[in-house]
C-alpha cells in the first residue's frame, strides 16, 4: 500500500471522513445562520442552543414518547422551528429596526438561558442516543471501514443543504426571500406579507439547526453544551464564507471540515485552531468573506 508522507492511507481517509462529518454540521448550521442573517439582519447566537435542543427533543421523543429516530428527524426540527417562531414573534421582531448588535445580544442571552435550563434538568454528563438499527454497522471498503451512520450524516446534510439552496435560488418562494433580503420595504409595497416571510424564514433557519441536532444525537452524546462548543467554530465558518451567500456558506462548511481533518493528519496540534487561523487570514485579505459581497 502506498503511503503519503509517511501517513497510512487508512488514517488519512479516516480523518478526511471525520472532517467531512464535521463539515456536514458546519454546512447545515452556517447555512441556517446565513439565511437568517440575510433576511432578519440578526446574528443568531441562539443557533447552537437550538441545535442542542434538536438533539434533546429527539432524545425526549424517544425516552418519553417512544418515538424513534426516523419520525424524530422530521418532528424535532418542526418542534424547534415552532419554538423559534415563538421567539421571533415575541422577542426578535421588536429588534429589527435596531443595530445587529442588539439581536446578537438578545440571542446570546437566549442561548445562555436555554442551555442553562437543559443543564439544570439533565446535567452535563451527556445522554446516550442509539444509532437506529437500519444504520448500525458499516461497510468494509477494503481500504477502510465506513460506518453506515456517518455516511448517512454526509448524505442527509448534502440533501438538506442543496435542497435549501435549490429552494432559495430556483423557486418563487426563494425569489421572495432573496428580494426581501435586498429590499423588504419594496417587496411589502408589492403586496407580499414580509413579516410572515421573516417569521417563516427564522423558523426554517432554526429548524435546520434542529435537524443537525438530531443527526448529531447518535454521534456525539446529547449534552446541553454540545451547541455552545460547536457554534463558535460555525461562526468562524460563516465569517470565512461571507454572510451573504447561500452556496458560499455550504461550500465553506464542507471545505473547512475537510481542512480540519487534513490538519489532524499532518499537524494534529493545529487542528483545533486551523479554522480560526484561516478566519484571521481571510479577514485580513478579503474582509467580506470568500463568497461575500462587499457592502
Amino acid at each position: 500500500m502506498f503511503e503519503l508522507l509517511g501517513i497510512p492511507p487508512q488514517a488519512l481517509l479516516g480523518q478526511l471522513l471525520l472532517g467531512l462529518i464535521n463539515g456536514s454540521f458546519y454546512a447545515v448550521l452556517s447555512l441556517g445562520l446565513a439565511v437568517i442573517f440575510g433576511l432578519l439582519n440578526i446574528i443568531n447566537f441562539a443557533h447552537g442552543a437550538l441545535y442542542m435542543m434538536g438533539a434533546f427533543v429527539a432524545w425526549m421523543l424517544l425516552n418519553y414518547a417512544g418515538i424513534g429516530y426516523w419520525p424524530a428527524l422530521i418532528l424535532a426540527p418542526l418542534i424547534v422551528g415552532v419554538f423559534g417562531i415563538v421567539l421571533e414573534r415575541l422577542l426578535l421582531s421588536r429588534l429589527y429596526h435596531l443595530d445587529h448588535l442588539y439581536g446578537l445580544l438578545l440571542t446570546f442571552g437566549l442561548a445562555l438561558i436555554i442551555q442553562g435550563l437543559f443543564r439544570n434538568y439533565y446535567g452535563i454528563s451527556g445522554l446516550p442516543y442509539r444509532i437506529p438499527d437500519a444504520l448500525a454497522g458499516g461497510y468494509n471498503l477494503g481500504f477502510m471501514f465506513l460506518p453506515k451512520y456517518r455516511a448517512w450524516v454526509v448524505v442527509a446534510s448534502l440533501v438538506v443543504c442543496f435542497g435549501t439552496w435549490f429552494m432559495i435560488e430556483k423557486t418563487r418562494l426563494g425569489a421572495y426571500l432573496r428580494a426581501a433580503t435586498e429590499n423588504p420595504v419594496l417587496v411589502g409595497a408589492f403586496g407580499v406579507n414580509v413579516p410572515l416571510l421573516i417569521m417563516l424564514t427564522y423558523g426554517f433557519g432554526v429548524a435546520l439547526a434542529g435537524f443537525a441536532g438530531v443527526l448529531a444525537a447518535p454521534i456525539y452524546s446529547v449534552n446541553p453544551n454540545m451547541g455552545a462548543d460547536l457554534i463558535i467554530v460555525v461562526f468562524a465558518v460563516v465569517v470565512i464564507g461571507g454572510m451573504g451567500s447561500i452556496m458560499g456558506s455550504i461550500l465553506t462548511g464542507y471545505f473547512l471540515g475537510l481542512i480540519e481533518g487534513l490538519t489532524r493528519v499532518f499537524y494534529p496540534e493545529g487542528s483545533a485552531v486551523v479554522i480560526f487561523v484561516i478566519m484571521a487570514l481571510v479577514l485580513l485579505v478579503k474582509p467580506e468573506g470568500l463568497f461575500g459581497r462587499a457592502t
Binding site: R172, A175, R178, A179, N183, V187, F190, G191
Partner: peptide, 17 residues
C-alpha cells in the same frame, strides 16, 4: 427603480404577486 440584483429579469418580472 428597485430592481433586485440577486434576481434575474424573469424573477424580477414575476415577483409582485
Amino acid at each position: 427603480r428597485g430592481i433586485f440584483a440577486a434576481l434575474n429579469v424573469d424573477e424580477n418580472l414575476m415577483l409582485p404577486p
